[in-house]
Amino acid sequence: MSKGEIIAGFLAPHPPHLVYGENPEQNEAKSQGGWEQLRWAYERARASLEELKPDVLLVHSPHWITQQGHHFLGVEHLSGKSVDPIFPNLFRYNFELKVDVELAEACCAIGAEMGLTTKMMLNPNFRVDYGTITTLHMIRPQWDIPVVGISANNSPYYLTTEEGLEEMDILGKATRKAIEDSGRRAVLLASNTLCHYHFSEEPVPPEDMAQEHPQNYEGYLWDMRMIELLRQGKTGEVFELLPQFINEAFAEVKSGAFTWMFSAMQYPELAGELHGYGTVIGTGNAVMEWNLIKAGLAQAA
């Protein structure tokens, strides 16, 4: 078996509005569109993923919150209807996914060896969270690539942000080692919004784009500053600023996916490709790609 590798990482946020705006058959709620800038950003990301031809997609979602350790989906087939508890009017999605249990088990075991509390989720009746499902639908609506789903341990909230993100850094290292040992060609998905200040009321209809704009100007400025640094490949500077960004822009990257992904990729000082930016109910969302094949850091298939 040849050595596995991470071939790309995507910042792949999960506002359910994007699925709602697209009107796929799996979603019960129907719209007249909306959030096109972000949906077109995902179209570009989908095309890129198609070329990457990964064996597996790994997704870390802030809406599977766990207190005792970092958990991994460990049931080969999971299906059901996922209803977003915050936006049930927009997202009632029938999903069916295939889990790469072998890789999940390896991530879990190596994470434990590295000192983390880790756990496999083995209950076949488990309801996969809407963050995982939205990110996976937006990046690969065909659902034909196996998945490793990873929970967001609440350490950045329970401990300090810095202590929590240190755990996510270890989780990233464990993920990398597991992928290398597995022989898989893997794509990482960090399911995170940037600035998370949001409006407290929905427009009628929710897809009325005349109402959609950043909720908070300071937060918007933060998003632009961070995206600009990421586009320049100034990863070190981004991670120096991260705790301040989290604090001042209430950024969802606090939950760890972004740190997990960059740790797994060994924090490359590599210019990220911005596929697009847009707001959803006022929050800032960027779809970005770090293509390690194009950068010569991983091999083409």
């Binding site: 005792q68 508890p85 915050i86 083995l122 209950n123 009746n125 488990f126 949001h198 929905e202």
Partner: peptide
Amino acid sequence: WIAVLDQLWQTKPHLKDIHVDENWHE
């Protein structure tokens, strides 16, 4: 039961299902 936008009240007359806890699934 976390709400963010409004105060929510359950109005479905009958709720019957199985739930698996996010953290204590085992």
